[in-house]
């Protein structure tokens, strides 16, 4: 195979995969009205994706806030007054660090778990068994995970933002000698509702990406244990990459158009 053929095949294959993901997403969205009625299935997934991820997200967030405080203080040095510390932490957390780091952590945990579960179901013929019972696997398995992802990611991002701001505050108070009043006055100074909203819009899309990558790679699993391992790796890698790429696209769109005024 020459280089041109290799590139052509790789691009063709990748485009076909993108098409397949969108087809799966379209089918899942179509079944959402029916899936909403499956309250137990949706609630189970919400618990797994949301509540199950909280401890990990909260630990990540508290240290993220702390690091943001230390880094900001280092960069301020003698040029920027420390009363802006809360401003910088607040803005960077709700716009960027909160949604992206939460999505990366949840993507690793939940994306892998969805891919492994659906992949195992595929290789042990449980997906075929669902079909033989006249149950659409997309409605029964994919739609509840998609719903849970797009609802729970924004919710846990709100928790993550809050905890990261508290983490930044604790470090500012104990390590940087910034008073409570100064920190929170700075926090409120330039923090707009649109900042929080933009972070939540990102989290919504990240939730869709995590659920879809887990489901897509899980349902395409072939072979046995090795296939499940490959699907899990692909789900996590593709989730993380897509989260970062989508983050850039959404940031460009949101701040150049929607929230620019």
């Amino acid at each position: 195979m020459n280089a041109v053929e290799y590139v052509g095949r790789t691009v063709g294959f990748s485009l076909a995969e993108v098409g397949a993901v969108f087809l799966l997403l379209g089918s899942a969205v179509k079944t959402i009205p029916k899936a909403i009625r499956q309250k137990k299935l949706v609630a189970e997934q919400m618990l797994r994706i949301g509540i199950g991820s909280l401890p990990l997200v909260l630990v990540t967030s508290i240290f993220t806030g702390g690091v943001a405080a230390v880094q900001a203080a280092y960069q301020f040095q003698d040029y920027v007054p420390m009363r802006y510390l809360g401003t910088v932490i607040g803005k960077s957390v709700v716009i960027e660090l909160g949604p992206v780091l939460t999505a990366l952590v949840v993507g690793g945990r939940v994306g892998a778990s969805i891919a492994a579960e659906l992949g195992t179901m595929k290789v042990t013929e449980q997906i075929d068994a669902l079909e033989t019972l006249a149950i659409d696997p997309i409605r029964y398995l994919v739609a509840p995970r998609l719903l849970a992802g797009l609802v729970m990611l924004p919710i846990i991002t709100i928790f993550a933002d809050f905890i990261a701001i508290i983490g930044g505050f604790v470090v500012a108070l104990i390590g940087l000698d910034v008073s409570t009043h100064v920190y929170f006055t700075g926090l409120k100074l330039f923090l707009h509702p649109s900042d929080v909203l933009s972070g939540l819009v990102k989290a919504f899309f990240f939730g869709v990406i995590i659920a879809m990558m887990g489901c897509y790679h899980g349902l395409r699993t072939q072979g046995g244990a090795e296939g499940v391992g490959i699907a899990t790796t692909k789900a996590v890698v593709s989730s993380c990459l897509l989260i970062l790429i989508t983050d850039y696209i959404l940031a460009s769109l949101l701040f150049s158009t929607v929230f620019s005024g």
Binding site: E117, T120, M121, T124, E125, Q126, D128, A129, L130, E131, T132, L133, A134, I135, D136
Partner: peptide, 19 residues
């Protein structure tokens, strides 16, 4: 899907839903 309601199938490994 409607047609499949007329079928039952026993799989080689039983394929029970483990959850």
């Amino acid at each position: 899907y409607e047609f499949r309601k007329r079928f039952g199938m026993l799989f080689q490994g039983a394929a029970l839903f483990d959850s």
